[in-house]
Amino acid sequence: MIVTALSLQGINLNYLEKYCDDVSTLAKKHNSRLVVLPAHTATVLGFATKSITATVSEPVADNLENSSRQIWVEQYLESHSKLARSLDIFLAAGTLIEEKAGRSYNSAYCFNPSGELCTVQRQTHLTRFEHEVGLSRGEDLTLFDCDGLKAGLVVGNDAWHPEIGRIFGLKGADLLLHCDAREGELTCWSQASGMWAQVQQNQFWAVEAQLSAVIGDKVYGGSSAVIGPCEITPGQSGYLARGYPHSKYVTAELKEKARRQIKQKYPLLKLLNPEAYRDSLI
């Protein structure tokens, strides 16, 4: 399976049609079956196309703002559903605020090649800022079928909480898609302590889309990556592909047979010792 993660650098964001054309061109060029967009893509695109005047990455109390945001959210989801269908790909479309029963969640959305929403994943571990703006935590982690692989979405800060990788790993995840945006520069060390570390201790694949863009006065300088168990990556680095802060995208082919072989050779999850932490992780 060929996978691609975008940073939004070099993508025309001023017009929705041109944005879709750019994403399509990239996906076709690499024959990608899976494309992952970073967190806040809807906000970046919404501002650039002048579809919104307030972020769709945070809850907003103002009703007027809410109605214009709602229109944009629907348009955004519809256009990405079409994009997934027309390209015949799985498309992780970044994050949006999901309102449910009086609560707001930061959620990532993924469409399957039929254009159907195959999963919505709420962020489960919030930053202090995300708490302050009124977001709530999700309490479930779900997997979906991605061409025979069990896939899950990882939202933002969850990548730095190893409980997420372990739960997904023990549920049988083969592939995690991480939609993220970190303010400032995401150093290689910070990145390695997130998804890279989760991949190494659970032996799944991860496709990490980090935003490289400016929203208001906030600068996001992340670099995207495709990560696998060290043993089956060039130089045993754990990276199948790794971008720089201003790289447009990264792409790589996931060789599932190799991953299954390494899991069999070093069965890390089978060597867990649950008796030692039965009552300690709650």
Binding site: T124, H125, T127, F129, W160, L170, P274, I282
Partner: peptide, 22 residues
């Protein structure tokens, strides 16, 4: 630490039963 969080409801949902999956 502005980045760290705990989610007891999530942990209660999965731990320790999740280890039986291995």
């Amino acid at each position: 630490d502005p980045w760290r969080d705990k989610n007891p409801a999530l942990y209660r949902r999965y731990f320790p039963e999740i280890y039986l999956y291995k």
